[in-house]
């Protein structure tokens, strides 16, 4: 099967400091890839550079569009970037407050992307929004409540509903569970695993937590100091880490 995303020799530098350096990988439709590393390892920089939020210093990212054409994300116009973000991609931020509109109701948050795509039937928008609230385990009766009154976990689930409502082909997630209590994290990870399977999404998720990668990702990339030190099948990496840094990460997970 043909790849959805091809990343080749991708680097992003902040002045003289390396953000990420010479990264290459392919992402296939329906695949969830985790980028694992400590804070400062360059994993978020890599995610943002792949998602065309940061300009690459070197290298290229090609994206296979819905219409079958390949798009060079380095040469992407602002118009195309926004169109992709609206029609084919989704973003889930670490802090749900960055991804939600806090001053409008939960229902409007879920319906916004549909309205941006031209959906103009209020009743139908409500039905879809209720359906999605239910899907992410939020009581549909809260459709008209503002997300400011929601718990952190609920806000994150609302952000997931808001992002997935248009069934994007590719979702970028930056530590979606990092700010939450462990019990809340488990629930969201479980939810994500279910939705990714149901919808057949391709996703790239950044996490510092190897347990998250084990739960969700078929493949994992391990980063240190802006470089990829190891990549491959998640199980293989976790069971038989080759690089000293990965061994350290795995052992620290196992001992805690």
């Amino acid at each position: 099967m043909s790849a959805l995303l091809q990343v080749r020799g991708l680097s992003h530098h902040y002045g003289r400091r390396i953000g990420c350096e010479n990264v290459s990988f392919d992402l296939h439709p329906g695949e969830l890839l985790c980028i694992v590393g400590e804070s400062g390892s360059g994993k978020s920089t890599l995610l943002n550079t792949v998602a065309a939020q940061l300009t690459p210093t070197a290298g290229a990212v090609h994206y296979h569009q819905k219409n079958g054409d390949w798009l060079d994300l380095g040469a992407l116009s602002e118009a195309d970037r926004r169109r992709l973000a609206r029609e084919e991609w989704g973003f889930v931020t670490q802090n749900p407050r960055d991804g939600l509109r806090l001053n409008v109701s939960a229902g409007a948050n879920v319906a916004e992307r549909l309205m941006a795509l031209g959906q103009r039937d209020y009743g139908r928008l409500r039905d879809i929004a209720r359906g999605w609230l239910e899907r992410v385990e939020i009581d549909p009766a809260r459709i008209d409540d503002a997300p400011t009154g929601f718990s952190g976990g609920m806000q994150q689930r609302l952000q997931i509903a808001r992002t997935l409502v248009t069934q994007p082909r590719l979702v970028f997630m930056d530590e979606p569970t990092a700010g939450l209590d462990v019990s809340v994290q488990a629930r969201i990870l479980d939810l994500l695993r279910r939705l990714v399977n149901e919808l057949g999404l391709a996703a790239i998720m950044v996490t510092h937590d190897l347990a998250v990668a084990r739960l969700l990702a078929a493949r994992t990339i391990v980063m240190q100091g802006g470089h990829v030190v190891e990549s491959g099948l998640t199980d293989q990496i976790l069971d038989d880490p080759q690089h000293a840094y990965t061994q350290l990460l795995v052992s620290s997970v196992l001992t805690t």
């Binding site: 602002e78 118009a79 926004r82 509109r101 409008v104 319906a111 916004e112 309205m115 941006a116």
Partner: peptide
């Protein structure tokens, strides 16, 4: 200006949606 250039008007409908909901 960018929103106009790209006819990206979902935000306006969010406002109208909220009116009806409220």
């Amino acid at each position: 200006r960018t929103m106009h250039a790209l006819a990206d008007y979902g935000l306006m409908h969010v406002k109208l949606y909220e009116d009806i909901a409220q």
